[in-house]
């Protein structure tokens, strides 16, 4: 967190209209995140950008920490991934309630039929658990595999595994962030779908 904050402060120290290399990189990251959010939830880019962006940046940094000798990825700890999954779980409801109100948000659990409410609730829990366990399992197993190969084969043998680690770290971060985005967007757009379908019926 400190590293990311200091990096942000250094990069953002002198922002120019004609950007330097670091500013270009920062704007590129920002633009990429913004475009990804716009592709999923085009009407809530400004609202979702800080949370989803932070999630992605944090996960990339955290997953890549495992490459540094003597440092473990925070995401190979189930507590850390569970914390992030809970935050995603809470943010889905937070953004949903903020968007259309408490009652309107809760009403979408009863649609299209109240019978589906238990399944909705189970789905909410299981997807959160899956989110946490998926990231934890992938990162932990990756580090474990690298450690085992290092112990068995020697110094340079786990190098391809480290390359795989980089890819896996980026992919897992992307998957986690994208799933979080899709969940949140689902919570937001379910309200809109309902209202638009009602509007069509009225017409």
């Amino acid at each position: 967190m400190v590293f990311l904050t200091v990096l942000a402060l250094v990069v953002m120290r002198r922002l120019e209209l004609i950007p330097g290399p670091m500013q270009t990189l920062a704007e590129g990251i920002h633009g990429a995140i913004e475009e990804a959010i716009r592709a999923v939830a085009p009407n809530h880019v400004t609202q979702l950008l800080p949370f989803i962006g932070t999630l992605w940046i944090f996960l990339v940094a955290a997953n890549l920490c495992g490459l540094i000798p003597g440092v473990h990825s925070p995401t190979r700890d189930l507590s850390a991934t569970t914390a992030l999954a809970i935050l995603v779980f809470l943010s889905v409801h937070w953004f949903g309630i903020r968007s259309k109100g408490f009652k309107a948000y809760l009403r979408h659990y009863l649609s299209p039929s109240p019978i589906l409410l238990p399944f909705q609730l189970v789905s909410e829990i299981t997807r959160t658990v899956a989110l946490a366990v998926r990231l934890f399992g992938n990162i932990m197993s990756l580090e474990m595999a690298a450690l085992m190969i290092l112990l068995v084969a020697g110094f340079l043998a786990p190098l391809p595994i480290l390359m795989l680690h980089i890819i896996e770290a980026l992919v897992q971060a992307y998957i986690f962030g994208m799933l979080a985005l899709i969940y949140i967007a689902g919570g937001l757009q379910s309200q809109q779908l309902r209202s638009s379908s009602k509007g069509e019926l009225n017409e």
Partner: peptide, 15 residues
């Protein structure tokens, strides 16, 4: 994470 979110929002996204 929330602190990081606030910091990045304050020092990265907004600028």
């Amino acid at each position: 994470f929330l602190v990081l979110l606030w910091l990045l929002k304050r020092f990265f996204y907004k600028p």
